[in-house]
Design a binder for these strands. Structure first.
Length: 157
DNA sequence: GCCAACGTTGGC
DNA sequence: GCCAACGTTGGC
């Protein structure tokens, strides 16, 4: 079982939206490293943290699961879509996605600030590295378990 | 292949 | 809204 973290701007698509729709195509990823994780490493059934970025309180707020194998992101071929990529060809798609399924909310948001305070335990997690912009990143089983442990504690600091 | 310019991300 | 960090682009 693989573990991941997916960023989403709550102004665009929040955990509320995720819960309401149930299953969502994770489209719009336009970063090659993130694309590679999606396309080459995600497996159906993998678990992922749902992270709110670029907002008042950046935090992990929920858990989703991978609900489909990777397939070409249809928005790259739609000229009216803001994620349209004129250089991508249907016979050689550049951008891929998976469907994700809502699993649950965390008992409380586990904030970025809090995660950074525990950098010793979360060493290597891209999210807490300075300047990181990756929107799809792997999480180790140890990091996954540690963050689930944080969820069970009241926020400190 | 270098690297300056530019656009985007995302915390603050 | 600011701006540092980073990825991409394109001239050379």
């Amino acid at each position: 079982m693989g573990y991941w973290l997916l960023k989403s701007e709550p102004g665009e698509f929040s955990i509320d939206d995720m819960e309401r729709v149930g299953v969502e195509p994770w489209d719009g990823v336009r970063n090659y490293q993130a694309r590679n994780w999606l396309r080459d490493h995600m497996q159906v059934g993998d678990q992922a943290f749902f992270y709110h970025s670029n907002c008042k309180e950046p935090a992990i707020v929920g858990i989703v699961s991978v609900a489909s194998p990777a397939y070409p992101d249809p928005t790259q071929f739609d000229p009216r879509d803001k994620h349209f990529d004129p250089k991508s060809r249907p016979d050689d798609p550049r951008w891929w996605l998976v469907d994700v399924r809502f699993e649950r909310r965390l008992r409380r948001p586990v904030t970025l600030r809090e995660l950074k305070e525990r950098e010793e335990e979360l060493e290597g997690l891209a999210l807490v590295r300075r300047g990181n912009r990756l929107s799809v990143m792997p999480v180790t089983p140890q990091q996954w378990a540690f963050i689930l442990g944080l969820e069970q504690q009241p926020e400190s600091g």
